[in-house]
Deep mutational scan, measured.
Amino acid sequence: ARYHDEKKIIKDILKDKGFVVEVNTTFEDFVAIISSTKRSTTLDAGNIKLAFNSL
């Protein structure tokens, strides 16, 4: 259940930042955007990776 909650937070962060994940978006770029907000401090690193892979 935590993964789904965190995935929603991640999607909200991406929307707030106006960031669109494209086919050529690197995981490093994705993490940089997510990490640039205070909301990301509680996110699990594994869940961030899973969310990236699912987009």
Rank of each mutant, 00 (worst) to 15 (best):
A1D: 15
A1W: 07
A1V: 08
A1C: 03
A1G: 11
R2L: 05
R2P: 01
R2D: 09
R2V: 02
R2T: 11
R2K: 10
Y3I: 08
Y3A: 00
H4F: 15
H4K: 14
H4L: 15
H4P: 07
H4S: 12
H4Y: 14
H4V: 13
D5T: 14
D5F: 14
D5A: 15
D5W: 11
K7T: 09
K7Y: 15
K7R: 13
K7G: 03
K7M: 15
K7V: 13
K7I: 15
K8L: 06
K8M: 13
K8V: 11
K8W: 03
K8C: 07
K8D: 07
I9T: 03
I9F: 05
I9M: 08
I9H: 06
I9W: 00
I9R: 04
I9V: 07
I10V: 02
I10G: 02
I10S: 01
I10N: 07
K11T: 10
K11I: 14
K11V: 13
D12Q: 13
D12C: 04
D12K: 06
D12V: 00
D12S: 14
D12F: 07
I13Y: 01
I13D: 01
I13T: 01
I13H: 01
I13R: 02
I13L: 07
L14N: 05
L14P: 00
L14Q: 01
L14D: 04
L14F: 01
L14M: 11
L14Y: 02
K15D: 13
K15W: 06
K15G: 04
K15V: 07
K15T: 08
K15F: 06
K15P: 01
K15A: 12
K15S: 10
D16G: 03
D16V: 02
D16N: 08
D16H: 07
K17T: 05
K17Q: 08
K17L: 08
K17S: 07
K17P: 00
K17G: 06
G18P: 03
G18E: 09
G18A: 06
G18T: 03
G18W: 02
G18R: 06
G18V: 00
F19Q: 05
F19P: 04
F19W: 07
F19G: 01
F19M: 05
F19Y: 08
F19V: 03
F19S: 13
V21K: 02
V21I: 10
V21G: 03
E22R: 10
E22I: 04
E22V: 02
E22G: 15
E22K: 13
V23D: 15
V23A: 15
V23P: 15
V23R: 15
V23H: 15
V23S: 15
V23L: 13
V23G: 15
V23F: 11
N24D: 14
N24A: 08
N24V: 04
T25D: 04
T25P: 01
T25E: 03
T25L: 01
T25C: 05
T25N: 02
T26E: 09
T26L: 07
T26H: 04
T26S: 12
T26C: 06
T26A: 10
T26K: 15
T26R: 11
T26P: 10
T26F: 02
T26V: 05
F27A: 04
F27T: 05
F27Q: 00
F27Y: 15
F27C: 01
E28P: 01
E28M: 05
E28K: 09
E28N: 06
E28T: 05
E28Q: 07
E28H: 12
E28G: 02
D29N: 06
D29L: 00
D29F: 02
D29H: 05
D29R: 02
D29T: 05
D29K: 04
D29M: 04
F30T: 06
F30N: 08
F30Q: 09
V31G: 03
V31P: 02
V31R: 11
V31M: 14
V31E: 09
A32N: 13
A32S: 13
A32Y: 05
A32D: 09
A32G: 12
A32W: 00
A32V: 02
I33Q: 11
I33F: 09
I33A: 10
I33V: 15
I33G: 02
I33Y: 00
I34Q: 03
I34G: 01
I34S: 04
I34H: 05
I34R: 03
I34A: 02
I34N: 07
S35K: 14
S35T: 10
S35C: 12
S35P: 01
S35F: 11
S35I: 03
S35M: 10
S36D: 11
S36T: 11
S36Y: 07
S36E: 08
S36I: 04
S36K: 07
T37R: 03
T37E: 13
T37W: 05
T37G: 08
T37P: 09
T37I: 04
K38N: 12
K38R: 11
K38P: 13
K38D: 10
K38S: 12
K38F: 06
K38M: 07
K38A: 10
K38V: 08
R39N: 09
R39Y: 10
R39W: 10
R39Q: 14
R39F: 09
S40R: 06
S40Q: 03
S40E: 09
S40I: 13
S40P: 13
S40M: 10
S40Y: 08
S40V: 07
T41V: 11
T41K: 12
T41S: 14
T41M: 05
T41I: 07
T41E: 10
T42H: 05
T42Q: 14
T42D: 15
T42C: 12
T42M: 12
T42S: 12
L43Q: 01
L43M: 08
L43V: 01
L43I: 06
L43P: 08
L43W: 01
L43F: 07
L43S: 01
L43A: 02
D44R: 00
D44K: 12
D44Q: 06
D44V: 02
D44L: 10
D44S: 09
D44N: 06
A45Y: 12
A45L: 10
A45Q: 13
A45R: 12
G46M: 10
G46Q: 14
G46T: 12
G46S: 12
N47K: 03
N47H: 08
N47V: 07
N47Q: 05
N47F: 09
I48L: 13
I48W: 02
I48V: 12
I48S: 02
I48K: 05
I48E: 12
I48A: 03
I48Y: 11
I48R: 01
I48G: 02
K49Q: 07
K49F: 03
K49P: 04
K49W: 14
K49T: 10
L50M: 14
L50Q: 11
L50C: 11
A51G: 01
A51L: 09
A51Y: 13
A51V: 13
A51C: 12
A51E: 03
N53T: 15
N53D: 14
S54T: 08
S54M: 10
S54Y: 07
S54E: 15
S54V: 02
S54P: 00
L55G: 05
L55K: 02
L55F: 12
L55E: 05
